[in-house]
């Protein structure tokens, strides 16, 4: 076969053979692989059968997007890394929206929850009553969380543990005077151990935390899509799910005293959604 014949055969093969279709890019949210905690009472606990507010939200998103969802256990230490190495495509794990996390390439849909920060003390310990009474007290925080970065004036903040559960165990063993974290996270422990702990001084130290659904930078459309679903969730399901998962908070924040109503305290507003969600391009 001379070269012309060979070229002809090649052209024929390329142009007239059976078309090999390039598979289209699979949609990013075709299947939700969601990083969740398993040691955050109220938000997500359990081993095989996870339950909590974050799990309710995960199922709501999956149902409304009509895609399957599979949870993967993450910790506060590894959730950014797991999201970035694409082992999961979302993280719903009482994950606070911060500019620093945005700068790490993590975008957030939502927020779906707002909480201030507080101290957890043993139920029979009444030493911490106001800002000044924290002086000289040992306070445990979970490292790699926003709470661990707060400096409470006069308190000993050197006790840092890998998980809040470790801090709570240390509190039970009287190895620390208090645990500092997000108020709702602490109420989860109050509910999980009735009569053992109390939440004190909410909002006195630290800043408001806005929990969002974390998604990797570069998925702005998907982030906005999730945002629309979260808005639906806030409108239709949020109150019922909150009442289910945080009955103690509903009781404490009934609106009958200065503590305010749980909905006005912990439910994000439309303005929060406008200003905090899907900021990365």
């Amino acid at each position: 076969m001379n070269w012309r014949a060979l070229l002809g055969v090649l052209l024929l093969t390329a142009g007239c053979g059976p078309e090999t279709e390039q598979p289209p890019d699979r949609p990013f949210l075709e299947r939700l692989t969601v990083g969740v905690a398993n040691d955050a009472p109220g938000f997500s606990t359990g081993s095989t059968n996870l339950s909590g507010f974050d799990i309710d939200l995960m199922h709501f998103l999956a149902d409304s997007l009509q895609v399957p969802a599979a949870p993967t256990i993450v910790t506060s230490r590894n959730r950014v890394a797991i999201l970035k190495n694409r082992s999961v495509n979302l993280v719903i794990s009482n994950f606070s929206i911060t500019r620093e996390r945005n700068e790490q390439g993590v975008d957030f849909a939502g927020p779906y929850m707002v909480t201030d920060q507080a101290l957890l003390v043993r139920a029979d310990d009444h030493r911490i009553t106001d800002r000044g009474s924290v002086r000289g007290k040992s306070i445990c925080t979970e490292d790699t969380t926003t709470a661990s970065l707060v400096d409470i004036p006069g308190a000993d903040m050197n006790t840092k543990r890998p998980t809040t559960r470790d801090c709570v165990e240390q509190l039970a063993a009287k190895g620390t005077d208090a645990v500092f974290n997000d108020t709702l996270v602490l109420y989860g422990y109050v509910q999980a151990h009735p009569g053992k702990y109390r939440v004190v001084l909410p909002g006195t130290f630290g800043q408001l935390q806005f929990y969002g659904v974390a998604i990797l930078r570069g998925h702005r459309d998907e982030c906005r899509k999730l945002n629309e679903k979260i808005k639906l969730f806030l409108r239709n399901d949020w109150v019922r799910r909150f009442q289910d998962q945080f009955p103690k908070v509903v009781e404490e924040y009934s609106g009958s005293d200065d503590s305010g109503n749980y909905e006005s305290e912990f439910k994000p507003t439309d303005a929060d959604m406008e200003s905090l969600s899907c900021k990365l391009r």
């Binding site: 911060t98 970065l149 200003s275 905090l276």
Partner: peptide, 9 residues
Amino acid sequence: PALGLCAPR
């Protein structure tokens, strides 16, 4: 910026 979000509100 690591602590929370204040600027937007």
